[in-house]
Every structure is written in C-alpha cells, then in structure tokens.
Write a protein that binds this DNA or RNA. Structure first.
Length: 116
DNA sequence: CATTTGACTTTGA
DNA sequence: TTCAAAGCCAAAT
C-alpha cells in the first residue's frame, strides 16, 4: 500500500476545486503510461477517512465510472457542479475547460493504512 | 510464486 | 457512430 497507491492518493488529494483529471493522466504522471486500470483500482480501494476528492477523477470521456460510487451519477454530477465544474449538453464534464494536469512529483504525505 | 481483478484506454469492425 | 476485444499494471488472494 505504500507504493503506487500512495502516489495516486497524493495526486488525487491535490486536485483543486473545480478541476478534474483522468486515470490515464495520473498514471502517466507516475510514470506508468498504461497504468490507468491500476489507478482505477487504487481509487476503488480508497479508505473513507482520507476524504479524497475521488469525484474529481473521471475517465477519459469525461463521464464517471459504473455509477453507484457516490450514490449515483446524479449525486456526483451535483458534487462537481457545486465546485464550479460545468457539464456539456450530453452530460459529460467539459474536460478541456476543467482538466487538471498533476505536477510531476506528488509529495503529499498520507498516513499508513491497511489494504481495502 | 501464479492467478485474478479492476472507478481505464485504445483500436478495429 | 456505436459496440466489442485486447492490452497493461500493481495489489490482493
């Protein structure tokens, strides 16, 4: 839990309000150009106590995953909208406008924790 | 140590 | 344009 996951969490924790990023970008920032799936898996295991803004992490299309993570897509859309994120007519996030590219070296420190 | 899994991405039909 | 299949990586079992 102290390697890749920690870095993923650090980056997610650093996403500013009103911004979003993608799994692929996070992976890329960590040096794993094709590690999007791993990032997604890491997100799946996020402990609640970390309060990571995982709702700001979306897939490349600008839509959210499967759906029931935050109680439903509408919930998440509402959360994002509350932070200033705008949506396109087709219900997807306005990626070019809100996409946030993480800095190369995440240094945020996170407490030790057990696997999900 | 080998297999499975997952909130993804890209490509080809 | 929409749908299906394969590729990739790290942690979990």
């Amino acid at each position: 839990m102290n390697g890749f996951f920690r870095q993923v969490y650090a980056i997610v924790a650093g996403i500013p309000e009103g911004k979003v990023t993608t799994y692929g970008l996070i992976a890329e920032t960590l040096g794993h150009l094709r590690g999007a799936r791993t990032v997604g898996w890491a997100m799946h295991c996020i402990p609640r106590e970390l309060d990571l803004p995982s709702h700001r992490v979306v897939n490349r299309a600008g839509t959210l995953a499967p759906g029931d993570i935050f109680g439903g897509p509408e919930i998440q859309r509402m959360m994002l909208a509350a932070e200033g994120v705008t949506f396109l007519p087709d219900g997807r996030i306005d990626m070019p406008k809100h996409l946030w590219i993480p800095d190369g070296a995440p240094e945020a420190e996170l407490p030790e924790r057990r696997p999900c």
